[in-house]
Simulated scan of single mutants.
Amino acid sequence: MHEIRLNEIYDPFDMTHMTMSGEFEYKQTIEIDKGIYVDFDVNDAPVSIEMIMASKHFGLLSRNFENAKKEGKIMITHESIRFEMHVHFMKRLISIDREISNDFGIESGQYSFSNY
């Protein structure tokens, strides 16, 4: 499994943008669910995650989401793309799990990510 350390930018409009450190060549953006987008590079590796109304996906207040530790996995097969994200807040683990059909030709792979 490839591990990716993401740099997070959170804005006051409850949008979070986590981007891989370093340079990459952008290929495409895939909408995983309403308000959840993953960018892939030319090697079909996920390089960026953007969440609109991020705190709402986890049932948290925006200020609590902003300061929480976040981690997850992106698992890609020829059939599907699965996105899991976990937020650690006050000794609680809050998770989302979404899966879509891989109609984009993204190569198989498993990636873990975190903002810490």
Rank of each mutant, 00 (worst) to 15 (best):
N43R: 14
I106A: 04
D33L: 08
V47I: 14
R98M: 05
A68Y: 03
H88V: 09
N102V: 10
V38H: 00
F58K: 03
V38R: 01
R92I: 06
Y26P: 07
H78L: 13
L93A: 11
I96D: 02
T19K: 12
G59F: 06
D103Q: 13
G72M: 01
F89A: 05
S48G: 11
D39P: 06
I30C: 06
G105W: 08
F104Y: 15
K34N: 12
K73A: 06
S62G: 07
F40S: 05
D41P: 08
M75T: 14
L61S: 13
I76G: 01
F65K: 02
F89P: 01
E107N: 11
D44L: 07
A45G: 10
G72Y: 01
I94D: 01
S80M: 10
S48H: 11
L93N: 12
N64F: 06
F83L: 05
D44Y: 06
D33M: 09
M53D: 10
V38A: 03
I36V: 12
M85D: 00
S55A: 15
Q28T: 13
V87L: 04
S108N: 13
H86W: 08
H17I: 14
M53T: 08
I74D: 01
V87A: 03
M90T: 10
M51N: 00
M51I: 10
F58M: 04
D97P: 06
F58N: 02
D103R: 14
F89S: 06
F83T: 00
M20Q: 14
M75E: 15
E50H: 05
N67S: 11
M51C: 05
F40Q: 04
A45M: 14
H17V: 15
I106P: 00
I106N: 02
D41T: 08
G35L: 06
E71P: 02
I76V: 12
D39F: 05
K34A: 11
M53Y: 05
E84K: 11
I100N: 04
M90E: 15
V87P: 00
I94N: 02
V87W: 02
T19F: 09
L61H: 12
S80D: 13
Y37G: 03
E99L: 06
V38S: 02
F24T: 08
G105M: 11
M90N: 15
A68S: 15
H57T: 02
I32E: 00
I36T: 04
K70W: 00
Y26H: 14
K70D: 00
V38E: 01
I106D: 00
M53G: 06
I94C: 03
N43Q: 15
